[in-house]
Design a protein around this nucleic acid. Structure first.
Lengths: 128, 128
DNA sequence: CGCAATATACGAAGGGCTTCGTACATTGCA
DNA sequence: TGCAATGTACGAAGCCCTTCGTATATTGCG
């Protein structure tokens, strides 16, 4: 059976964000990035990335001594699933409810609102 | 130190949704609701609700033999925190990004879009 | 009255996530 | 050349969540 890749855990997501943003890289490089944000051990990052490889969240190139890891899942699709999960878990599947929450949020800046309005405009043109 | 109530786990959130929607009720009533959706044992629900009481996510009235549980956290505030967490974990704090995901989602229905446009209109009036 | 039904309490198992320590191999430079 | 640095592998601990079984008390009805 083709099992869909699982939704990444927290630690896994943090690593995926780095790989998505900066492209394929070694454990060391990811570790350095993470280290800038918080205290964490090198082998912790290594282990997590090994588990991610086992889950097919990443692939790794082992041709060099320092393996190079690459995201094996699309940013869009993972983020879509994260949103989808939250939708199911808390908002009864209603995107409108979730968006309202997000919009009423402090951090929905004026800029954000502008972007969203723009998006909606485009969206309404292309809507079925 | 006044510790903020924790973000509810999955099982806890499912129970809170019921309490929010239907008001204070017994374990039995919650169990019946949950049972309609999936297989789960009565004592599982009981235990979870007891833990929720310990965490102050709910309060319970013990004056009757069947304790009556009531949500002790506001729906809005919990949902806000859920959105906030996702924002932090996956969207670099950008509400616009999250909203875009939610909007591009299949389940952002035409109705949802309408509601959201309406919301934005109001929002722009009240914006600082 | 006595028993079946229903309630709470709670220990414990099992799984997943995160973390780290330790073992061991390889590398490169003083 | 030999050692410090750097790499991978992996077991295991600790924590939380979820689940359920079991013990025990209470209730109400036939």
């Amino acid at each position: 059976m083709p099992r869909r890749t699982p939704v990444p855990s927290n630690a896994e997501l943090a690593i995926l964000l780095i790989l998505w943003r900066e492209g394929p890289q070694t454990v060391r490089a990811v570790y350095d990035s993470l280290r800038r944000e918080r205290d964490i051990g090198y082998t912790t990052v290594l282990k997590t990335m090994q588990l991610m490889a086992a889950k097919k969240l990443v692939t790794r190139d082992e041709s060099e001594r320092s393996h190079v890891y690459r995201a094996a899942v699309a940013e869009k699709s993972i983020k879509r699933r994260l949103v989808s999960d939250l939708l199911d878990r808390a908002f009864d599947g209603s995107a409108a409810q979730l968006v309202m929450q997000a919009l009423s949020h402090k951090r929905a800046s004026a800029e954000d609102l502008k972007k969203i309005r723009q998006l909606l405009k485009e969206n309404s043109r292309g809507a079925r």
